[in-house]
Nucleic acid binder design. Sequence first.
DNA 1: ATTAGCGATGTTATAATGTTTCACTAATTT
DNA 2: AAATTAGTGAAACATTATAACATCGCTAAT
Lengths: 169, 169
Amino acid sequence: MVSTPLPYRPHNHAACVEQALADARRICTDASARLTPTRERVLELIWQSHKPLGAYDLLAALTLDGHNAAPPTVYRALDFLQQHGLVHRIASLNAFTGCTHAGDHHTGFFLICRQCHNVLELASPDLDGAVEQAAQAQKFAVEKSTIEIAGLCPACQSGTPPEGTHCHE
Amino acid sequence: MVSTPLPYRPHNHAACVEQALADARRICTDASARLTPTRERVLELIWQSHKPLGAYDLLAALTLDGHNAAPPTVYRALDFLQQHGLVHRIASLNAFTGCTHAGDHHTGFFLICRQCHNVLELASPDLDGAVEQAAQAQKFAVEKSTIEIAGLCPACQSGTPPEGTHCHE
DNA sequence: ATTAGCGATGTTATAATGTTTCACTAATTT
DNA sequence: AAATTAGTGAAACATTATAACATCGCTAAT
Ligand SMILES: [Zn+2]
Ligand SMILES: [Zn+2]
Ligand SMILES: [Zn+2]
Ligand SMILES: [Zn+2]
């Protein structure tokens, strides 16, 4: 299992990506799902960025690969990756990010820096519990939680946004 | 102040809408903000539906009014209404709903029925606290919370989805 | 080997959502 | 009244996502 990434701190990103891909291969094998070249490449691109990528960012990257891809190519790959818990869609950004808890059943939530655009995925039983409790009070049956917290990451609060390529600049 | 709406139960909807509009007028007056006819009409349309409406749903409704509106007309009105806490955008639906706590400073969250598309806005200090605590543990400064819970409302769980017009049907 | 089935992909077109820009008008301030 | 500001109209454009249908490649039964 990939360790929780630390997008706010330096790390060996190539190894980080490779670990995520290795995990994905295993997860798909276990599920008898086919992590085809296109799907794997999309996942790799998402992990390489470590910041949420839009579908058309991915499309452009595939085009650079020489892959003559159209929007459905990307959206299909993203659907597959989401269904197998390998990526999450960030609704407030219309973008996709690698799941850092792939394989676990989990309800993630996201801390999204509005300045450097880094995203940190966390899981909090307390938060899940608070959601479930509030829902139960209304007799509402929870199926899917979308919890996206926008603000400033520690680095950006201190005026030193993390260096590195930002894919939407 | 408008009482908490009960979208899952019958109510005098015309009075509900009128109350929301009266509240909005007062809030805007207090803030020296201009609730112009277009803005007020958009707010009225949103409240009349009592289910989230997309920007282009609103645009179509304005067109039916005889208002020769273009997309920016709607988005500008929505921006104004959001800035004054009169409507919320539901990111997971690309749609807008009337704020049931207008005037309060609050961090709302939403229970969204995937079947009847009713939305219930709630505020939960426990939930807010869990979010703030999880963020603080990462030294993340929260600015805006997007918490949208999808599932089934009580009526739809029991197989009797609330009657009434559904605007996206 | 043949062929029907099926998942995945290619391809084109289109739908749905959201923004930029500039010219113009109405309201407010001085 | 003049200057300033806020709001609107209108056209074009940009971005995000899906529909529809053809095709390819593998597999499994015939
Ligand atoms: Zn995850
Ligand atoms: Zn940051
Ligand atoms: Zn609200
Ligand atoms: Zn329902």
